[in-house]
Every structure is written in C-alpha cells, then in structure tokens.
C-alpha cells in the first residue's frame, strides 16, 4: 500500500505482574480499513485496543497517530486534554455494553447530540436535526428521538451508541466486541449496519472480537493473538481460509466444528 498509515504501533509490550499481556506487538491501520484483532479471552486483544487508543499505557513501544493535517502524534505522549479532545472528535469508541457509553437518563437525541455540543455546536435546531438524521442512519425510528434509552432494546441501544459515536464523523473507531451479548438475529442486522456505515463513511476500525464470523464479515485484515503475541496476520480471507499458524488452525477448526 502506498498510502500513509492512520495508526502505527511498534514493539508494544505490557505485563500485568508476571503475566504478559502484550509481547512486542506491531500493528498498522490504513485510512478506511477494518482491522480485526481476534483471539480467545486472555489473549491480550482488549489490552491492545486499550493501548492503541491511549486508554492504558504500555511498558514499552510506541503508537503513532496521523491527524487530518498529516501530523504524527505519539498517542502516549499527548497531553491529556489533547487526547480527550481526540477521543470526542476524530476518534470513537464503541463499547461491548452500550450502557458504559450512553447516558441512560438523557433522551436519544441528547445522547447523539452530546459530541456535537462538546465540539462547540450551539444551535439547538441543527443538533436535533443531526440527531434525527443519525437515528435514521442506524435504523432507529426518528420519532423516538425524545425517548429515554431505557425504553430501547439491546440491539437498539447498540445502534444508538454507534450513532452517538459517529455523529462527529470520526476517521478512526475502536470497537470492543460490538455484537457481544446480542441475539444471533440481532447480531446479523447490526453487522450489516456497521459494514455499510464504515464503507460509506470510509471509517477505519480496530475491531476486537472473539468471533471469527464477525471478523470475516467486517474486516479487511486480521491479527490473531495468543498469550499477548501476534501469531499470524494477513488479509482476512487468506488467514481464515488458509491458516498457517497452529493456533489459528485450531481457532478456525473449532469454529467449523461448532
């Protein structure tokens, strides 16, 4: 690829006590690309997501992020205000549990509009219009703009979280098991929605999932992690159809058996 990366990490290592969570991990993400990080629980994939997004610090290694003006920033050397500003503008984070992100006592419209207001938007009518537009984009009836999230189903809450995250048109979104905890039929609809939104808006995504089917559907490339190490990486179809590493082979075959 000739284009410059959006996010690059080199040599990330992190130990929790004696347990290695990350061992010398490199990662690259290009604009508009979906990168899936897969592995069993305890493989270090969620830790990697937290380190790449600056939420926790690695023992060693560096993570570079390229801003829209093409300037490079060392994510872990950024001042806290700049990192938090980044997290509510050019970046987004979709949690497995939407309740960790949404304000449950604020209307759907207020939830979607918050990032716009934090970014300085001071026109109520425009904010509300954007909220209604985004509800439609995530297939929530715009008539529910004034309803409280507690009246929403699990799948709707997850779609509301996605609307709330994408409203500022971030270029990079971190997703932590976005379809976890949902019924299979709800999952399929959500995956379709994420796939079309990401493609249409050209959003780069770091997607953490234990579910190879989710990775196959959404990701361009895939990283397989085991005990903190990246054991295999490549184009999604290539890795899943012709796994080279024994651990990847085991993962793929266990899915087939299931």
């Amino acid at each position: 690829m000739t284009e410059e990366t959006l996010l690059s990490a080199r040599g990330l290592s992190l130990h929790f006590g004696k347990v290695p969570a990350l061992v010398n991990v490199d990662a690259d993400l290009w604009p508009g690309e979906v990168l899936a990080v897969v592995g069993e629980s305890g493989s270090g994939k969620t830790t990697l997501l937290n380190v790449l997004s600056g939420r926790i610090r690695a023992d060693s290694g560096v993570t570079w992020y390229r801003d829209p003006q093409s300037r490079l920033h060392d994510v872990h050397a950024m001042p806290a205000p700049a990192l938090r500003a980044l997290h509510r503008s050019d970046w987004g984070f979709v949690h497995q549990n939407p309740r960790d992100n949404l304000r449950m006592s604020v209307s759907a419209g207020g939830n979607v509009g918050e990032r716009l207001m934090a970014a300085g938007n001071r026109h109520y009518g425009n904010i509300r219009e954007a909220a209604i537009d985004w509800l439609a984009q995530v297939e929530i009836d715009p008539a529910r703009v004034d309803d409280m999230p507690r009246t929403f189903s699990g799948g709707m809450l997850q779609r509301l979280q996605i609307a709330r995250t994408l409203v500022t048109h971030p270029r990079l979104v971190f997703m932590d098991e976005p379809t976890g905890g949902l019924d299979v039929s709800v999952q399929a609809r959500l995956l379709d929605l994420i796939r079309s939104l990401v493609a249409r808006l050209n959003i780069a995504v770091v997607l953490v999932t234990h579910d190879l089917a989710v990775a196959r559907l959404l990701a361009h490339r895939i990283m397989v992690m085991q005990r903190g190490e990246v054991v295999e990486t490549g184009l999604t179809d290539q890795v899943l159809d012709d796994p080279q590493h024994a651990y990847t082979q085991l993962l793929v075959s266990s899915v087939l058996q299931a």
Partner: peptide, 11 residues
C-alpha cells in the same frame, strides 16, 4: 469539558 451541561439544556 462542558458538553454535559449543554446536554442538560438540550434536554
């Protein structure tokens, strides 16, 4: 970070 206060006004 005062976005939450504006959310209150929005509500």
């Amino acid at each position: 970070e005062y976005g939450s206060m504006h959310v209150r006004l929005y509500e």
